[in-house]
């Protein structure tokens, strides 16, 4: 068994290791959280209470921090980490590079994220800053900027929604341009990563809000989150089945790749138990069969969200590792 486990993580054609899987995961969480925050704000338009809504606060924090975390992981994983600035400076040297376009996307996404956070949490940010520095000019500057940005609130939110979705699909595109690996070179991958990113973002936001900001099942936006989760998870399942069916009836290399991935390697266990059972079937079963009283308990909500997160992390690891096992 040790042999199989060792082989699962060390094989000749493996290039990208688990840090990249974590990077893919956190980017998905960021895009999903941002989408959730924008959706909640859209359906609960009370301006004043939005900045105090625990879900929106959690989502904003996760959206901003997870993408920064992802970039830090990426930089550390480079074989020349101190040269990371070259990716920023030379990002337009190769317009066809998905990774280069991703770097551009990160910058624009972060700018818009911070702009949106400033408009929504203007007063709260000011309060926090004033605890450390009490400078009238600084306060005035922040207020003026926030008000200026608030005038473009609608375009900023629409752009941010588009950018979040782009971030969600970007992780899929990053892998799907790899012609060398049949399991990764699939057109459905970006959509699959978007769906799993959205579900991981929602789950992470829910957990974060309950633990850190004392949210509960009656918090505004909580029921919306749950009503969004179910169709997204079902979509994820459908997309996975489409991937498997498509490859099973595809080219020889695709047939071998999917066979090795879901039937012959250690990663087959990770897929069926981690991705399908823990990540999709358990949460769905809990949604459909749990009693109402149970569903309103904090531990139940956190538990169900955790299962989804484990499922999404398993999916990232599975796709990354099993995907690199077979060459085209």
């Amino acid at each position: 068994m040790m042999e199989t486990l060792n082989h699962a993580f060390h094989f000749e054609t493996l290039v990208w290791h688990w840090p990249i899987a974590i990077y893919l995961f956190v980017l998905g969480v960021s895009s999903g959280s941002m989408c959730l925050a924008l959706t909640i704000k859209h359906f609960e338009p009370d301006k004043e209470s939005i900045s105090k809504n625990p879900l929106v606060i959690s989502a904003a924090i996760l959206a901003a921090s997870m993408v920064a975390l992802g970039l830090i992981i990426l930089v550390i994983d480079l074989s020349k980490p101190l040269d990371f600035w070259k990716v920023l400076v030379y990002q337009f040297a190769n317009p066809t590079s998905v990774m280069g376009r991703g770097v551009t996307l990160f910058i624009v996404y972060q700018v818009f994220t911070f702009a949106w956070i400033l408009t929504v949490f203007n007063k709260e940010i000011l309060a926090i800053i004033n605890k450390f520095i009490n400078n009238q000019t600084l306060n005035k500057f922040i207020n003026t900027t926030a008000d200026l940005l608030a005038r473009f609130s609608k375009p900023i939110e629409i752009s941010l929604l588009v950018l979040s979705i782009l971030l969600g699909v970007y992780t899929g595109f990053l892998l799907s341009v790899l012609v060398s690996y049949p399991l990764l070179n699939q057109p459905i991958l970006p959509l699959l990563f978007l769906a799993s990113g959205l579900s991981s973002g929602i789950s992470a936001t829910v957990i974060f809000s309950i633990i850190v900001f004392s949210a509960h099942s009656y918090t505004k936006g909580m029921s919306l989150s749950h009503r969004l989760e179910t169709p997204i998870v079902v979509c994820e399942l459908i997309l996975l089945m489409m991937l498997i069916f498509g490859m099973t009836f595809g080219l020889a290399a695709e047939q071998e790749a999917i066979r090795v991935a879901i039937a012959e390697s250690f990663w087959a266990y990770v897929f069926w138990i981690g991705v399908i059972f823990i990540g999709i079937i358990c949460p769905l079963a809990l949604t459909f069969f749990a009693s109402d009283t149970l569903k309103h308990q904090k531990s139940f909500i956190i538990g169900q969200a955790l299962l989804t997160l484990v499922g999404v992390m398993s999916l990232r690891m599975f796709i990354l590792y099993a995907g690199q096992m077979v060459i085209a």
């Binding site: 486990l5 060792n6 699962a8 993580f9 060390h10 290791h17 688990w18 990770v270 138990i273 981690g274 059972f277 823990i278 358990c282 079963a285 809990l286 069969f289 749990a290 009693s291 009283t293 149970l294 139940f300 538990g303 169900q304 955790l306 299962l307 484990v310 992390m313 398993s314 690891m317």
Partner: peptide, 30 residues
């Protein structure tokens, strides 16, 4: 029914933590 789901949930979480712990093999040297 409630306790059944609780048990179900605990087993699922236990299994998932087992799987997460297998990630520790990611860096073992052959």
């Amino acid at each position: 029914m409630k306790s059944l789901f609780k048990a179900f949930g605990y087993i699922a979480i236990l299994l998932s933590s087992v799987f997460v712990s297998t990630l520790s093999f990611a860096d073992t040297q052959t």
